[in-house]
Simulated assay, not measured.
Amino acid sequence: MADVEEVEVVVAHHECATLRIGDVFLKVDADQARTDVEVEAMARAPVPTPEVLWRKPPVLALAALPGTALGRLGEPSPASSAAWAAAGSAVRMLHDAPLPPWPGRSLDEIASELDGECEWLGTNGVLPADVVTRNRRVAEAALRPWTPVFTHGDLQVAHVFVAGDEITGVLDWSEAGRGDALFDLATLTLGHEEHLGDVVAGYGTDVDLDVIRAWWSLRSLLGVRWLVEHGFDPASPGCEVDVLRTQAMRDRRERGSASAAQ
């Protein structure tokens, strides 16, 4: 590393930062509990993860994964349908693994957070009231009891790496825990609905697509304020605000069709 002249800031915000120096990623996090979860989750996960090179709090050093990200939110994915299916298969392996010993967020916690975020969105005029109301209604389908599985917890498309049609690794496990399997599938396909069928095919079992779409709304509603307060733009093309608008239009269309049928 002494010969490396360039330091790349991969991501940085008020809570943590990730730097790349050559083939090494340095994650700096003030909350070492999150790092504890990440290291333990990677050790337990039955899918490829980055190699932990060393840990000197508050820094965690990880080896770079081979390949490239499956995609980016707001951009068309360059990956093949087979690669997306492989991602679905990897998620199924994770969900079939033994549960981690620590809990995830409870249903009541998520519902309470959703109420608060919807109130904030409405009070601050971030989105039209109709968009918030329709997505809040769609999100209700996700707020039901589920059988907990080992979830990644933040399975964004950029966190899954592929080489050709094969998964080479999954990044960022700090939010891993016990949770709803469909939340992981929804997070992976957020903004990439065109690949939902590929992921479900690779996952290999029937899933409730309405619940996945409900999680699209719920995750996006929960994420807007965090993104704004940490210097990101949720209104970038194809990102959370676009997802919410698309979900609202779908709800409007479906309810209009149902009314016409009556």
Rank of each mutant, 00 (worst) to 15 (best):
T133W: 00
L171I: 12
R137P: 00
G179K: 06
Y203C: 10
A248I: 08
R136F: 04
V200S: 11
A87K: 01
A248P: 09
A201V: 01
A158I: 00
S217M: 04
A85T: 02
W146N: 05
L53G: 10
V138H: 00
E166T: 14
E175P: 00
V224W: 06
S174L: 08
A30N: 02
D130Q: 07
M249R: 15
Q262L: 14
A248Y: 07
V9N: 03
R144E: 10
E193K: 01
E8M: 05
D184M: 10
L244V: 12
V228C: 10
G116C: 02
I212D: 07
G67A: 06
R136G: 02
E38R: 04
G104W: 00
V52T: 09
G191F: 02
E109M: 07
P50G: 07
Q247N: 14
A63Q: 14
P58Y: 08
D108P: 00
G104A: 01
A83C: 09
L185A: 13
L114K: 02
L171R: 02
R219L: 14
S217H: 09
L53M: 12
M93W: 06
E254C: 03
D242P: 05
E175N: 13
E166K: 13
H95M: 08
R44S: 09
H159N: 15
C118D: 00
W146H: 14
H192I: 06
V10Q: 11
A85V: 02
A83V: 07
A69G: 12
V52D: 07
E6H: 11
L121V: 08
G179R: 03
W120G: 00
D3H: 12
L107I: 09
G177V: 03
E254R: 15
V228N: 02
S81N: 12
V47Q: 07
V39Y: 05
E254S: 12
C118M: 12
A214H: 02
I110A: 09
L73A: 10
G223D: 13
T18R: 05
E229F: 03
P145R: 11
A90F: 00
P234R: 05
G202K: 08
G179S: 12
W215G: 05
R144N: 00
H230K: 11
P145G: 11
D108M: 04
V132S: 04
S106A: 03
